[in-house]
Amino acid sequence: MKKKEEHRINDSLLIKFLTKEADENEIIGVNNWLIEDEANKRYLEQVKKIWRHSEALNNFDSIDIDSDFNAVLRTIEKNKKVIKLNNQKLFLRIAASIVILLSVGVLIKNVLFQDNLVSVITQNNEQKEILLSDGSVIQLNSNSKLEYPEKFRRKSREIKFEGEAFLEIQKNPDKPFIISINNSIVEVIGTSFNLNSRSNQVTVDMVTGKTSFYSEENRKEKITLLKGERGVYKENKLSKSTNENANFLAWKTGKLEFRNTKLKEVIPELEKYYGIRFIINDTSINDLVITTTIDNQTFKEVMDEFEIIFDIIYEVSNESVIIKK
């Protein structure tokens, strides 16, 4: 109870003091009261503190928790959408990047790696000369097929071939020229040769330069062919011999030369050159020997000549020629 007494001060005076409405005498009165007791000082300090801080009431009063909470929730919702949108954008960006990368990849592949292949086919009695991008020339015989890129790859020159052709390959040690022909491969650097894949075998007849010849299955086992040599790939076997046939380019040159050649050896050349089948009734005809040069002559011209030389008779029936004595 004593404590309360100590703090007693005229309400009116205290308020006037706090609101700074007190006059000089009243202030002296308050000071005197303060001196009376330390507790009075503490009391005034506490009241002043409350007085001072009660100003902040205004702040609390002007805070609308509900409306501000809704504002916070709205922002959170908005941010969620933005994040979603950003994720979508990110996804789209990634997707677009992938598409672009793929496109560029395909483009690069097309330009650098994937060959824009050209196919050339020759019909019966048709020959074609093809100039490749590296300057090599391929002369296609009839009934042949060639597949080659418009532009060669960086590291090698590759073509596919069936039939017969004479190839003159430009020399380029950095870019070997590789020919795929009936499961065999002819690899050259610079050379010219005749290539034939007819009658179930591949024949390479060298004219100049050097080539490697191997099968697709066994790339390690190679044969090297030089000028005048013949390589044959037949029934999965590679063989090499000297080319005894001087007329292997007849289809190209139109020239057939025979020197002391037996008719049985002449006949296949003629068959090949003119695309005709001979039927010989008398086997003695086979051993007749001839020395002659056929230069861009028609079949009739040639056969008329043979009739006189060998004293034989020939008859054309369908696609065959029958030779009789």
């Binding site: 409350i50 801080h53 009660s54 902040a56 009431l57 702040n59 609390f60």
Partner: peptide, 10 residues
């Protein structure tokens, strides 16, 4: 803290 207490008691 004090201001909040004042607010509450007021």
């Amino acid at each position: 803290e004090l201001e909040y207490e004042i607010f509450k008691y007021i």
